[in-house]
Computed example of a mutant assay.
Amino acid sequence: MLTGKQKRFLRSEAHHLSPIFQVGKGGVNDNMIKQIAEALEARELLKISILQNCEDNKFEISEEIVKGTRAELVQLIGNIIVLYKESRENKKLELPKVK
């Protein structure tokens, strides 16, 4: 579970990132979740955009992706989801320590 301080840090790191996945009319499927999990292992922090033609609720989509990838939801703002998952082999981000 991320603290508020850690989420603020991750939001600032994610600000300059571009979304690398898009959820469209088809919604979320197993293949997409697998690809997102692999990208999280490589990058640790990423953005996903929800397109206008997506019929599902953005909260349900974010919940489904978080469950499937076992990642942490950093932020859901507008139609952009920001996810974080600590990498086992490609550790890049050093989170602020919890006191």
Results as ranks from 00 to 15, higher is better:
residue 24 G to D: 11
residue 4 G to P: 03
residue 73 L to C: 11
residue 85 K to C: 04
residue 76 L to R: 07
residue 26 G to M: 01
residue 87 S to A: 13
residue 45 L to F: 04
residue 79 N to E: 09
residue 28 V to Y: 05
residue 10 L to E: 03
residue 38 E to P: 02
residue 39 A to G: 05
residue 15 H to E: 15
residue 82 V to R: 05
residue 83 L to A: 07
residue 74 V to K: 05
residue 80 I to C: 09
residue 40 L to P: 13
residue 68 G to Y: 07
residue 23 V to H: 02
residue 63 E to I: 01
residue 88 R to M: 10
residue 22 Q to D: 12
residue 49 S to P: 00
residue 54 C to L: 02
residue 73 L to Q: 15
residue 88 R to C: 09
residue 86 E to F: 01
residue 66 V to S: 08
residue 20 I to L: 13
residue 39 A to F: 03
residue 69 T to S: 01
residue 24 G to C: 07
residue 49 S to Y: 02
residue 27 G to Y: 01
residue 83 L to P: 14
residue 53 N to L: 00
residue 51 L to Q: 13
residue 35 Q to A: 11
residue 68 G to M: 05
residue 92 K to S: 11
residue 12 S to W: 00
residue 78 G to E: 09
residue 50 I to T: 10
residue 95 L to A: 07
residue 20 I to N: 10
residue 70 R to L: 06
residue 44 E to W: 00
residue 16 H to F: 09
residue 6 Q to L: 08
residue 25 K to N: 14
residue 13 E to R: 15
residue 51 L to G: 11
residue 15 H to G: 00
residue 75 Q to S: 14
residue 49 S to R: 06
residue 2 L to A: 10
residue 49 S to D: 13
residue 66 V to W: 02
residue 97 K to Q: 12
residue 37 A to F: 00
residue 7 K to V: 03
residue 20 I to Y: 05
residue 13 E to V: 06
residue 34 K to P: 00
residue 47 K to L: 00
residue 72 E to V: 00
residue 17 L to D: 09
residue 98 V to G: 00
residue 88 R to W: 07
residue 51 L to F: 01
residue 75 Q to P: 00
residue 93 L to D: 10
residue 57 N to M: 02
residue 66 V to Q: 15
residue 49 S to M: 04
residue 70 R to T: 03
residue 94 E to A: 11
residue 16 H to W: 06
residue 5 K to V: 06
residue 4 G to D: 10
residue 61 I to E: 02
residue 25 K to F: 15
residue 14 A to I: 03
residue 58 K to D: 12
residue 67 K to G: 14
residue 46 L to I: 09
residue 12 S to I: 05
residue 35 Q to T: 05
